[in-house]
Design a protein around this nucleic acid. Sequence first.
RNA 1: GCCGACAUAGCUUAGUUGGUGGAGCGGUGGACUGUUAAUCCACAGGUCGCAGGUUCGAGUCCUGCUGUCGGCGCCA
Length: 442
Amino acid sequence: MSKQHWIGDVRAGSHDGAEVELKGWVHRTRGSNKIWFMVLRDSTGLVQCVIKRDGVGDDTFEELSTTLIESSVIVRGVVESTDREHGHEVQVSSGEVVGRVNPERPFPITESAMAEADGGETEFLLDNRHLYLRTGRMTTMLKLRSTLFGAIHSYFRDRDFIEYHAPNFVAGAVEGGSTLFEVPYFGRKAYLTQSWQLYAEAAAPALERLYTIAPSFRAEKSRTRRHLTEYWHAEMEVAWASNADIMEYGEGVVRHIAKTLLDESSDELSELGRDLELIASYADSAYPRIRYDEAIETLQSKGVAVEWGQDLDYSKEKVLTADFDVPHFITHYPRIAKPFYHRPDPDEPKYVLCHDLLAPEGYGEIVGGGERTWSEKEILERIDEEGTPREPYEFYIDIRRYGGVPHGGFGLGVDRVCAWLSGADHIREVIPFPRDSRRVTP
RNA sequence: GCCGACAUAGCUUAGUUGGUGGAGCGGUGGACUGUUAAUCCACAGGUCGCAGGUUCGAGUCCUGCUGUCGGCGCCA
């Protein structure tokens, strides 16, 4: 390997008393004309390197002490255990600058730029996102995000799910047509996918248990801390499954994510200011379930103006969520409030067999799913009552014509779960290059 | 689509009833042998978002535009 020593190992004491060669970026500097302190960063952490004029000679001292923040450097020296800030220091014996930052264009992300923007969401920091990525808070968030994605994969793979991929260019909608991104496609119109679901249902008779983590696109002009136009969507589909079965998986994967973050990224959670006890309660608690009708009664008893049949918007979700310390499900929405692919309850056909999982702390809906309309007769009835044209959904109807079985699945907003569990103020904090209705750069 | 804010140096910002725009950080030069956002001295850096208007005089008041941010609807 071209890089053999990592700052994280230095900090862990693995190299005490030994010579190391550190490759990294200048985080901060301070010093005098005889001794210079360079705090070096690599992907594993920060460590202070001590450069003494007597020890390295005038030329090296000048070269290293004139580097600006975010210059890339290589330094060699002996690791010394100390009582000072990082617990370890490198006494530099030699070193050189690899990529020097031009003083006419110093690194623009300064302490002052970050001081007033706790979550890093100022216009300036969003414009300089490509540079902001390498600052502490963003790096920590990206590590946490990686653990979270890994937890979703391990949850499904440990349960014999097959990872399965759907196209991103599609011809039809899953949700309402107004939120589709239209793209030119060799003289025709195509759209960016909103969901993997319809294509997953096609593979359910082949794979029975399947999942994915993929981007979904929604052309919503939403300006909230919960919305992106391009977001990461973890979806699953299971043959021979009921709404209750799917909810078990939904609760299971969210609790597994919380547990995995505690096991593998507790340092990152703490650095982001998250209370580990709180995350543990998300991992260990059962998630309460209430029916839509109960939710309406609760809202009405609290004086919220809402009528049966209305979908529950965010203002109402917030009122409901205030009663719960952990995520909770709302099930059995009115048939008229949900799209055709939700299966009506055979016992009470004015409801559909579906569920939403609402995160606590105001983070909104994180999972939506349910049992699918799975017979040919029922799907045609649902499509017609909605007034949706049948033609674009012929392939979807075909799935029912050839050995349809009860099945269901859910979609989980990965970025939303990441925002919730990390305690982010805004969903943009948890994705490297956020996309919303007003920003596609950098 | 709707509602509400904001726009001053590279960044963060002060700017009083309208009277020649200041500071901190960052940068440059200098001092300093153990600093922790090091400290101290000096210097450079501004079309006050754009276009009109009121006024003897506009960063400040008015109108329009542009951009950005926050929230709602919709959703994961």
